[in-house]
Amino acid sequence: MAQIELEVVTPAGPVVREQVDIVTAPGFGGVFGVLANHAPFLSTIKIGELAYKQDGSESALMVSGGFCEVSDNKITFIVESCEKGTDIDVDRALKAKERAEKRLAEVKAKGEKINMVRAEAALHRAIARVSVAQKSN
């Protein structure tokens, strides 16, 4: 099967650089999949789960906001942070999710708009982290 080159770069350095079969990522308009020889494509990326298949084995990464570019049979993710599913501790992620939920509820009760956006982002990250971690472990 034809493969596509996947590259994930974050400000802390490149994370992944591999030949893969398929990539699925949380795009602006929902999750999308990219196979080899995809047409040039540019999309923003939301907080969520970036999954890729490589010779039958599947890997998952948690990515936070950024964007991705497909060109010349290469898909590049330029994201602010990225964590490998295998590096995430499920219990800790679950606890973080609970905390984020609590904080969001508190902020909502107070009606602080800026903090609400932040709390929502934190919750999104926590949810993505949990789902990636549960899949990988």
Binding site: G27, G29, P40, F41, L42, S43, T44
Partner: peptide
């Protein structure tokens, strides 16, 4: 010019 943009170029 050949790129597919999601959402539009402007929103990106």
């Amino acid at each position: 010019g050949d790129y597919i943009y999601e959402p539009s170029q402007e929103e990106i």
